[in-house]
Amino acid sequence: MNTAELLAPINTFLHATTPDAWVEEATKPENFSMLLLDHLICELKASQSAMFLIRKYAVDKESSDALLAWLQPFEQYVYKREGDWRDLPSKNKLSKSVIPRSDSKYGQDLIDKMVLLIKEELHHFYQVLEMMDHFDIEYRSITPSRYAKGLLRHVKTHEPDALVDKLICGAYIEARSCERFAKLAPHVDAKLGEFYISLLRSEARHYQDYLSLATDIAGKDISERIAYFGEVEAELITTSDSDFKFHSGLPA
């Protein structure tokens, strides 16, 4: 499958394309370090979000603790500046099998899809660190963008609708990431562009996994809810935003 075929369903799913003005802003030399730093944090946040879903909805405390231990070295590197980033690939593994709770009807499917996603996102996290090292960009703390919070504030508060909404949000975040990697690839350094293209297939699958989980768990037609979040997401992408980040809106 070529890039155009891979992106076709994503471009149909998203309600707006990334504005050219954002691409222009993203490719300015003064924004290069922020682009990579925010991408790095996005990979960690994607792992954390997927892990939260497994821990809250699918597993017991023992499995939950094993999941937290898996993520710990990556979080310590970011939040406490502890450890050598070059050692992180050896940490990207679970110490035990994750078993679904007996009362979770969808637990195994959620675990299977989200554990694979976490492994891939943590691998991407390391790959971004490699890129940062290549371009002599040091890690530093940055503030989060409005994007994820802007989506999640619309999540319902009762279950299972809350879980379904979170999964729909996850689908949009992954789809937008995929679309932006493809948009950026022709306009950045060749090495970075190749890296972005290499991410497309997994990001596209992640969006599909989130969407299929949402549909299966809801057990009913959720097309209206998907469309609702599509409009919310499009507004975040196309309206004025003074804080440049990987998922920021139209440059102010």
Rank of each mutant, 00 (worst) to 15 (best):
106 Y>C: 02
192 L>T: 15
120 E>I: 08
162 A>W: 04
110 L>S: 02
128 V>G: 02
46 A>S: 14
204 A>V: 06
68 L>S: 14
58 A>S: 13
105 K>P: 05
197 I>K: 08
84 D>I: 09
129 L>A: 08
173 I>N: 06
16 A>M: 03
135 F>D: 09
171 A>K: 03
131 M>R: 12
227 A>C: 01
240 S>W: 14
46 A>I: 10
5 E>Y: 14
1 M>W: 11
131 M>C: 13
128 V>K: 03
161 D>A: 07
214 A>R: 03
130 E>K: 10
38 D>F: 03
205 R>C: 12
65 D>R: 07
13 F>P: 00
88 L>F: 13
216 D>F: 12
71 L>N: 08
4 A>Q: 13
168 I>W: 04
147 Y>P: 00
244 F>E: 07
225 R>E: 04
142 I>H: 06
61 K>M: 08
189 D>H: 11
147 Y>N: 03
79 Y>M: 14
24 E>H: 06
55 R>V: 03
60 D>F: 05
166 K>P: 01
214 A>G: 09
117 L>E: 07
183 K>M: 13
150 G>D: 02
247 H>I: 00
167 L>M: 15
81 R>E: 15
37 L>P: 09
119 K>F: 14
69 A>T: 15
222 I>K: 00
60 D>S: 10
154 H>Q: 05
247 H>A: 01
117 L>I: 09
200 L>H: 03
2 N>I: 04
39 H>A: 12
212 S>T: 15
132 M>P: 12
18 T>L: 08
220 K>M: 14
46 A>D: 10
75 E>G: 10
40 L>P: 05
101 R>E: 13
51 M>H: 00
100 P>I: 04
14 L>H: 00
158 H>W: 11
69 A>M: 07
187 H>R: 09
176 R>A: 06
22 W>A: 01
92 N>V: 05
174 E>P: 11
145 S>T: 11
215 T>P: 09
170 G>M: 02
80 K>H: 13
49 S>Y: 15
146 R>Y: 02
207 Y>H: 10
18 T>I: 10
250 L>F: 13
76 Q>P: 06
8 A>S: 13
215 T>A: 12
73 P>A: 05
